[in-house]
Amino acid sequence: MNTTISNSTLSASIKHSGAELFSLKNNQNKEFIWEGNPDFWGKHSPVLFPIVGTLKNNLYTINGVEYQLPRHGFARDMEFQLIEKNENSAVFSLQSNEETLKKYPFQFELQLSYTLNDTTLDIEYKVINKGETKMPFSIGAHPAVALPEAFENYAFEFEKKEVLKYYLLENDLISNKTKVLETSDNLVPLSYKLFENDALIFKTLESNSLTILENSKPYIKVAFEDFPSLGIWTKDKAPFICIEPWLGYSDTAENSGDLLKKEGILILDSSQIFQAKFSIQIL
């Protein structure tokens, strides 16, 4: 089941499965979200919850009890309920249930709100701790922007001039090895070679936004002020790029497994509500 919202400039379509954005078009019917061809990658913009990235051995502990969670958690594979809808916005909800409690022993509600404002799609996350104990979690986005021209025709421009230090992955875990993303006049030309070791993981950035340029002209801007970390990823020869605002990231090889002590984890008190928002602007 799908829901579509629209205004005079854009339309966005969201699957109820995973509350996943799968289409963002302008009023000339141009598509800006990756089509999800499984030959490359069969998703479009999954929500990452209650973890981001990969746990060491896909395991974690809470109060000495061991649980298993797949990469990026379970929310992306679950059915959300549409709880609010008008012409230019929609709100989806996922509640903890018998299935989630086996993997993640916390009572929660996760809401995703999609709102169109002129040429911008705002995507807001709301996490509610409905239990009586502290709830550790991470949350992140994974939108894949369609790149209809040759990959090398695109470049990044970060909001601020800064040292773009990123961490390398080893066996899907964050290593201690880092590299610096080279820039030219604050631009990073795209090439598949950048991603030969998987995603670029930025634990911290000064920039609150990143603009994709197509043939040196602004194409799409992703703003992520509420998200301190960022992943950037594609697959070899794939005509898309994922710009991934994160609160949290993969384990390191040295991680203890205790989710409450995980690097980058958020802790939500009982009855507390957490909110964060990012946006995709068509330029």
Results as ranks from 00 to 15, higher is better:
L24C: 06
L24D: 04
N26G: 03
N27I: 07
N27H: 14
Q28I: 11
N29W: 10
N29D: 15
N29K: 15
K30I: 13
K30S: 14
E31Y: 12
I33F: 11
I33K: 07
W34S: 06
W34H: 06
E35K: 13
G36A: 03
G36W: 05
N37W: 10
P38I: 12
P38A: 14
P38F: 11
P38R: 12
D39M: 05
F40C: 10
W41Q: 05
W41H: 07
W41N: 10
W41A: 10
K43T: 14
K43M: 12
S45P: 02
V47P: 01
V47Q: 09
V47S: 07
L48S: 07
F49S: 00
F49G: 01
F49W: 07
I51T: 08
V52G: 08
V52N: 07
G53L: 08
G53M: 06
T54P: 01
T54I: 12
L55R: 03
L55C: 04
L55N: 04
L55S: 06
K56W: 08
K56A: 11
N57I: 10
N57E: 14
N58I: 01
N58F: 02
L59R: 09
L59D: 06
Y60G: 04
T61P: 08
T61A: 12
I62H: 03
I62W: 05
N63V: 09
N63S: 15
N63M: 10
N63T: 12
Q68M: 06
Q68P: 00
L69C: 03
L69Q: 05
L69P: 00
P70Y: 06
P70V: 05
R71E: 02
R71C: 02
R71D: 09
H72C: 00
G73Q: 01
F74A: 01
A75N: 03
A75W: 00
A75M: 01
A75E: 00
R76N: 04
R76C: 04
D77I: 06
D77S: 12
M78C: 08
F80H: 09
F80L: 10
Q81F: 12
L82R: 04
E84H: 15
N86K: 14
N86L: 06
N86H: 13
E87T: 12
N88M: 04
N88A: 14
N88D: 13
S89W: 11
S89N: 15
V91K: 15
V91Y: 09
F92P: 06
F92I: 07
F92S: 05
F92K: 07
S93N: 11
S93A: 15
L94E: 10
L94P: 08
Q95E: 13
Q95H: 15
Q95M: 15
Q95L: 15
S96H: 09
S96R: 03
N97I: 00
E98V: 06
E98A: 14
E98G: 14
E99K: 12
E99C: 07
E99I: 14
E99H: 14
T100N: 03
T100W: 01
T100P: 04
L101S: 08
L101D: 03
L101Q: 09
L101V: 02
L101W: 00
K102W: 00
K102E: 04
Y104M: 04
Y104C: 02
Y104L: 03
Y104G: 05
F108C: 00
F108A: 02
F108Q: 02
F108W: 00
E109I: 04
E109M: 09
E109S: 12
L110M: 10
Q111A: 04
Q111I: 05
Q111F: 13
Q111V: 05
